[in-house]
Design a protein around this nucleic acid. Structure first.
Lengths: 149, 149
DNA sequence: CGTCATTCATAAGCTGGTGATATAAAAGGG
DNA sequence: CCCTTTTATATCACCAGCTTATGAATGACG
């Protein structure tokens, strides 16, 4: 009996390639003051505005106490801030600060520079192939984000 | 004054796309018994055979004591094993066990299944674009690996 | 062989996560 | 209107996996 979703050889090759590429990306921004989750959360706040704490922890894949602590840390470093929700006394609204935006931008620039260096080793054809695949990769990210809802 | 490596708009777009896609991949294999580094190390042992401990920690981006501890954990779980190097009494040779190979295979299968599901949402053209970009991604990984030497 | 280098292990401490539980506000039924 | 239940966040105790500093054992070599 086949599993519900049979995996083709092509898809297996994609998975294998992505597996290695993931490790490459992981090491491309070696060590900063921000954890992976911290950076990801800041990017989310930058990208889609303030959120309640309860809307943050699930999509980031961590528990609610972990997000409470993360926000506390970010607040202590001046990268994010807590605000009371006037319509709900229990809730807390988290938003990114200017310093937070700057931190995200810096991290992004460092990674882009390292990546750019690698990209220079590609032939024009390979470079074009990467560019051509970008919309598909974005679409995959969209799917994954939806599914997490 | 321009930085040594000026970054084109295209490369910035690639970096931006990769940034998001990285997060997608990160959440695609949610929670296993293996840490990211543990899984990566096992894959390395599987892919390129036994290694001395000192050859492992740098490419994995962790300190030597961290690798000692990681190998101890992997050994305790039966996924890897230590052997004495007959030619050097100080050295330790680490190799993957059958159980380790099975763990890697399982993890790979889980990720491949999740990814395959996402891939089904792509049009044939998008799917082909991803496949076409794979060699370039692999080359980027090779570059990054070299640079770490 | 005595000294220095290399290889791995150990120790102590930090960061970022977990589950269980506390606190406080909102919601809702009788 | 209470009283109970649910929801939103915080706190607590604990653990995994990393760090730096250091130790122990073997190898290399003048």
């Amino acid at each position: 009996m086949q599993p519900a979703t049979a995996i083709t050889d092509t898809d297996a090759a994609i998975a294998s390639g992505f597996e290695r590429f993931y490790e490459t990306l992981r090491r491309l921004t070696p060590r900063g003051p921000l954890s992976l989750t911290a950076a990801s959360t800041l990017r989310r706040l930058e990208r889609s505005g303030p959120h309640r704490l309860s809307e943050l922890y699930a999509p980031e894949g961590i528990s609610q106490p972990a997000m409470t602590q993360l926000v506390t840390r970010l607040e202590k470093e001046g990268l994010a801030e807590r605000t009371d929700d006037p319509t709900d006394g229990r809730a807390v609204v988290v938003s990114i600060t200017d310093a937070g935006r700057a931190a995200v931008a810096h991290r992004r620039a460092v990674r882009a520079a390292a990546l750019s260096e690698l990209l220079q080793g590609l032939t024009p054809e390979e470079h074009a192939a990467v560019v051509a695949a970008l919309p598909a990769l974005e679409k995959l990210s969209d799917f994954a984000a939806e599914r997490a809802t």
